[in-house]
Design a protein around this nucleic acid. Sequence first.
RNA 1: GGGAAGAUACCAGAGUGGCCAAAUGGGGCAGACUGUAAAUCUGCUGGUUGUUACCUUCGGUGGUUCGAAUCCAUCUCUUCCCA
Length: 376
Amino acid sequence: MEFVLQYKDALSKARAGEITTSHGLIQTPIFMPVGTAAAMKGIFHRDLLSETSAQIILANTYHLYLRPGMDIIRAAGGVHRFCSWSGPMLTDSGGFQVFSLAACRKLKEDGCHFQSHIDGSRHVFTPESVMDTERTIGADIMMAFDECTPGDAPRDYAKKSLALTERWLDRCFNRFHQTSPVYGYEQSLFPIVQGCTYADLREQAAQNVLQYKADGYAIGGLAVGEPTDVMYSMIEVVNAVLPQDRPRYLMGVGTPQNILEGIERGVDMFDCVMPTRNGRNGQLFTWQGTINIRNKKWENDFTALDEFGTTFVDKTYTKAYLHHLFACKELLALQIATLHNVGFYLELVREARKHIINGDFSSWKGGIITQLGQRR
RNA sequence: GGGAAGAUACCAGAGUGGCCAAAUGGGGCAGACUGUAAAUCUGCUGGUUGUUACCUUCGGUGGUUCGAAUCCAUCUCUUCCCA
């Protein structure tokens, strides 16, 4: 994997660059749609490509490990072939499930002991086993196995948690270097900076990951309960330490506003379930802010779904029609809303990149934030 | 013509003397959702009022009772069964 930093904004930390992977180019800043089980809920990969111009998508180690299991992925020839996506892919390690499935797991020094949310069966995820699993899945970018620390963790816990993540990180890189790609193309491993909401822990964590000379670096453990302003300041602390010549990935973020603020602070890559999940729940992201298409006010609005939208659904369908589809719980509603939202997110980062290159990112961003609404 | 059951809030449907402004679904209205246990979850859904409180409601009318959606009488309507 290679990263070329192409443009740097004069008035902010915003950057535009290009990542080269074995499965193609990624122009940054980029948003990566989340397809946890190697599927974008409600969108054909074909449409993801042709309608939203998605350049890289996510899948999840924990979920793919449980279903369909590594035997099937290996037999399929890796995740790209299995799900028919020929572009770049990234796998999260299961570190987020340490957080989101806290109710069914025990953290130990060796790793995380999960009890499957599907059938209750027990599975131990160690840094080594996760590296092996991510090798088998075969994504272009593998994430280190970490503990995603809750945003409201007290300092003592955050410190202990970070220390565990750092010991695991060392084991991840050891295993990563001891093993080879299964399918012949290169894979990269990104470490994840934790440290919760404590600036000194974040800075120390950022310093610590530098030793691995990774192809890219991630900022994790944000947008997990802490105030948004705190998230922004943590990004600043970490990005001040991370190298300029490697991509920075802010994990799990976020709202359109969060993404613009992240870009302004030097983040290159984002992922979030928000456009897909919220879309399925009737929330549409637009340049005028979010709308809840289930609200009665759209019942007789026969204007285009989104006159500024870039996907075919935006001009093909009306707000009234999508409102109706949600009221009837039609499957088509989920497809339309999801495609629209993912299309919007990718248009958002394309525009950001364009304005970074044009040299007017800051003023453009200010205007857009006003348009979207300051909230969140 | 004879017999039986029933009428409850937008709909369906519990309740069968006080704890009932009335369970539960559905529908409706709004909100939440950030490395996906999520096509999910939460709140509200007679009126006025600040969660206290009061007022008007359980087919109509009239009773019994300290007190009625609940008991009695009667009327109207609905459904089913037998001819």
